[in-house]
Design a protein around this nucleic acid. Structure first.
Length: 439
RNA sequence: GGAGGAAUGGCAGAGCUGGUUUAAUGCACUGGUCUUGAAAACCAGCGUGGUAGAAAUAUCACCGGGGGUUCGAAUCCCUCUUCCUCCGCCA
């Protein structure tokens, strides 16, 4: 199988980004400060610029040497044809000495590039100007609050994990037996509810013009790096070392990688894709009451929407994605709010992220069910998703969002809709579940 | 899993007895001439990235990936990956 790991990104892959850093140094540094970078950590920027300077100098010297030896080699060929053996032999010696120099130059160039790439991979995306400063989720800004009353349940109301056993709709103990903690097993009406939600979300995405994709559930390291999961989230993914593959933490990874190394034609925009996949996350270090039940699991189902857009359109696109996700929650009749993530909570690859949280009435908590982000050119620089305009190459913008993540939606639906007679299914979902009540 | 064959620019396809090839040629594409318009024909252009330069331009790297032989590699050698054919196994 795949024992190799092609060095990624490919040769010279980062140059655009270095140039960006060079031309926008202040902006980059300010951006990293929004992400709470210390002065010491900021030194990576200077390291990058220094390494790039060295790279240019070395490259120039190597190129001129190579030009020289190419020229001499051609002349040697000519001399051989004319039968001038002695002169040819003499020139060979010249080329040989150049070659020794070139070898050294090539080695140091390779080393410089490796350092440069490592440093570049460690730099996250620059936050959008609207991203608020802050360290934790408490500093996120409420972008759109829930404007109605929150549902209030009576005192006998049960959290979803107790509803699970009451109605026999999912079973965490069985998951533990079969696999381990965090792998729920859905059954009966619970399993049907899962299937109904997936189909509902996919149909809604199709109706909104997204092409449906069913991608692989494992990806290679190149793909994981291109969308930014590696090296940043190495420990969060399940890694199959024998075959050097990773279980996907989100459909974003395989779906966005469809466009790795693709040059788009103008008429291909906008690209809108959707896909349902299970998502696998190790969630190392998360234990305790707040991760009870379906609140945080290692395997959950999610329908993802992905768009690739022209740069000047990408924030418009982001808005339409927010509307799409909001529309889904409206149809499911769930109370929700939208947060604009602060610098400290913003994902490594994202420029701007909005989180959707639904209110889970029995737990009396907000649960994150969707994250909608614009990555601007951060992913496309790694992916090499480009388009040509006026004879020049430009990086496209990539965006994605959950529409939606199931486990927590299920938690909120079960809790909020519980009645003495059973759990009511929202109208929009009834054609999919083919039942109106879990009882 | 075993045996054989293959991998060249958007596509097709030459080169593969190592040296004016800066990768032929065709198709597609773009611009132009012609035409009332279109087609055809003709002319020209037509990969990605790096470096130097204000630019014109020059130069370097890339013929699946990596390494090697050589003054010189698409061409020879090693290795990995993928695809095709055949055998085996299999939902």
């Amino acid at each position: 199988m795949f024992k190799h790991s092609i060095p990624f990104p490919q040769k010279h892959c980062f140059m655009l980004q270095v140039n960006f850093i060079r031309q926008n140094k202040e902006r980059v540094i300010n951006g990293l400060k929004v992400r709470n970078y210390s002065e010491e950590a900021l030194s990576v920027i200077d390291k990058i610029l220094e390494a790039d300077d060295k790279r240019k100098i070395t490259q120039t010297e190597l190129d001129s040497n190579l030009a020289e030896s190419n020229k001499l080699s051609k002349e040697i060929g000519g001399l051989f044809k004319q039968g001038k053996q002695a002169e040819a032999t003499e020139m060979k010696a010249q080329v040989a000495s150049l070659k020794i120099k070139n070898k050294a130059l090539q080695e140091s160039l390779a080393q410089i590039k490796t350092t440069l790439e490592e440093n570049l991979l460690s730099v996250p995306n620059i936050p959008h100007p609207s991203v608020p400063a802050g360290n934790t989720e408490d500093d996120n800004e409420i972008y759109k609050a829930w404007e109605h009353d929150l549902p209030v349940l009576d005192d006998e109301a049960l959290p979803h994990w107790e509803l699970a056993s009451k109605y026999n709709i999912f079973d965490l103990e069985l998951g533990v037996k079969i696999t381990g903690a965090g792998f729920p097993l859905y059954r009966n009406q619970g399993a049907k509810l899962q299937r109904a939600l997936i189909n509902f979300f996919l149909d809604e995405a199709s109706a909104a013009g997204y092409e449906e994709i069913q991608p692989p559930l494992m990806v290679n390291a190149d793909s994981a790096r291109a969308t930014g999961q590696l090296p940043d989230k190495e420990g969060q993914m399940y890694h199959i070392t024998k075959d050097e593959l990773y279980l996907i933490p989100t459909a974003e990874v395989p779906v966005t990688n469809i466009f790795r190394n693709v040059i788009l034609q103008d008429n291909e925009f906008p690209i809108k894709l959707t896909g349902y996949t299970p998502c696998f996350r190790r969630e190392a270090g998360s234990y305790g009451a707040h991760v009870r039940g379906l609140n945080r699991v290692h395997q959950f189902d999610k329908v993802e929407i992905v768009q690739i857009a022209r740069p000047e359109k990408s924030y418009e696109v982001l808005e339409t994605m927010l509307k799409h996700v909001g529309g889904l929650l409206d149809k499911l009749e769930l109370p929700y709010r939208i947060l604009r993530l602060c610098g400290g909570d913003l994902g490594f690859t994202s420029a701007l992220t909005f989180d959707f949280e639904v209110y889970s009435a029995a737990q009396k908590r907000w649960l994150e069910v969707s994250s909608v982000s614009n990555f601007e050119t951060y992913q496309s620089n790694r992916l090499k998703v480009r388009f040509k305009e006026d004879g020049k190459m430009h990086l496209a913008h990539t965006l994605n969002g959950s529409a939606l993540a199931l486990a927590r939606i299920v938690a909120a639906l079960l809790e909020n809709n519980q009645t003495p007679e059973g759990i009511k299914i929202p109208k929009a979902l009834q054609p999919y579940t083919k039942f109106e009540m879990i009882a």
